[in-house]
Design a protein around this nucleic acid. Structure first.
Length: 152
DNA sequence: GCCAACGTTGGC
DNA sequence: GCCAACGTTGGC
């Protein structure tokens, strides 16, 4: 049994179409401890909702699969990177990333507004007010339900 | 562009 | 260890 996740990306920086072109990509730039800790528990084969944030509309646009488990995010010690963190070094990395593989793009975005309409999804971190977590776990029930409404 | 909500930093 | 100030996220 895989575990299920949701990961947010701003499509201007990295979209599901970018992943589709590349097929496989590191998910770098996560600079939040809670999100990092979740990534460190990911296993190869885990399934991920690809979420577009800070855009109109925001929502889930497809699915990716974890293809490599957590390893140090080298952009964190690269001074030329936008994700540079002087407190992270190759000897003592503070930030980690996983690799993901393109799995499917949905025919239409499943918007946050629609997700919020379903009482079945009211317990999700995603639909809660003020939530800013960029990597979060999804229950098997939520995974199944969301796939259902995405494809109806 | 606005602003509410949240996480992090740093002074004490 | 507290908490105010600050910076960032992210929906609208």
């Amino acid at each position: 049994m895989p575990n299920y996740w949701l990961m947010k990306s701003e499509p201007d920086a990295f979209s599901i179409d970018d992943l589709k072109k590349m097929q496989r990509s590191p998910w770098d730039g996560v600079r939040n401890y809670q999100a990092r800790n979740f990534m460190q528990t990911m296993k190869e084969g885990d399934l991920v909702f690809f979420y577009h944030s800070s855009c109109t509309p925001a929502g889930i646009v497809g699915v990716a699969t974890v293809s490599k488990e957590a390893y140090p995010d080298h952009t964190s010690w690269d001074p030329s990177s936008a994700y540079y963190d002087p407190k992270s070094t190759p000897e003592k990395p503070r930030w980690f990333m996983v690799d993901v593989e393109f799995t499917e793009k949905w025919p239409a975005i499943l918007t946050l507004a629609e997700l919020k309409l379903h009482p079945e999804l009211a317990d999700m971190l995603l639909t809660k007010k003020g939530n800013r977590l960029s990597v979060m776990p999804i229950t098997a029930d939520e995974w199944e339900y969301i796939n259902l409404i995405a494809k109806k």
